[in-house]
Simulated scan of single mutants.
Amino acid sequence: MWIFGYGSLIWRPDFEHVEHRDGYLEGWTRKFYQGSTDHRGVPGAPGRVVTLLREPQARVWGRAYRIAPARANEIMARLDHREKGGYERHQVNVYCRSGESVRDALVYVATRENPEWAGPAPVDEIARQIYRSHGPSGPNREYLLELAASLRKMEAHDPHVFAIEHALRELIGEEF
């Protein structure tokens, strides 16, 4: 069984896995359109985390993890709890850097109909929300900065993530 991560699962999977591979999905794009009141924000002051949206010709990079069959039920229960804030399971094909592909990997995608949906907003507004948000899993800015750093390490360009990171760094007075 394979699980594909495109947000915090890239840099903090928090579950035992047999192997991992960097790869991408076709026809999807990553956006900071999901609110977070359970991890990176709180009720009344939600943070923002990423979800996937269908977009023809788009490609989103992330990391696929293979989990041991004997641990699958336990790991899935933990992931279902972690991704409880409006995410649904989907099956996708992951195209790995090595040229191999992983068929029917599981991925969590937030729907527009879920109560945590934040939707589109200007880059500066998203950065300000991330700047001031903090939840049980830590500061929202950590989520963004770790995601951006992980994408750079895997040499994956993501204009949306990097634009918000740039705006956030301006808010906190950091230079690249």
Rank of each mutant, 00 (worst) to 15 (best):
M1C: 06
M1W: 03
G5N: 02
S8D: 09
L9T: 01
L9V: 07
I10H: 08
I10Q: 00
P13R: 07
H17P: 01
E19F: 04
D22V: 10
G23W: 09
G23P: 07
L25G: 01
E26G: 13
K31C: 09
Q34K: 04
D38F: 02
H39F: 04
G41M: 01
G41A: 02
G44V: 10
A45E: 15
P46C: 03
R48D: 00
V50H: 02
V60C: 13
V60G: 01
R63Y: 02
A64E: 08
A64L: 01
R71A: 15
R71W: 10
E74G: 09
E74Y: 14
I75C: 06
I75V: 15
I75H: 09
M76H: 12
M76S: 08
A77S: 14
D80A: 10
R82S: 09
E83S: 03
Y87L: 00
H90V: 07
V94N: 05
V102Q: 03
L106C: 11
Y108M: 03
V109W: 08
R112N: 08
E116D: 14
W117F: 14
A118N: 05
V123I: 15
R128V: 05
I130V: 14
R132C: 03
S133K: 03
H134M: 09
H134P: 00
G135W: 12
G135Y: 11
G138T: 02
P139V: 04
P139M: 13
E142S: 11
Y143L: 06
Y143F: 15
E146L: 14
R152M: 06
R152V: 12
A156V: 07
D158L: 01
E165M: 02
H166C: 07
L168S: 01
I172L: 14
G173A: 10
E174C: 03
E174R: 11
E174D: 12
E175Y: 06
E175K: 13
F176D: 15
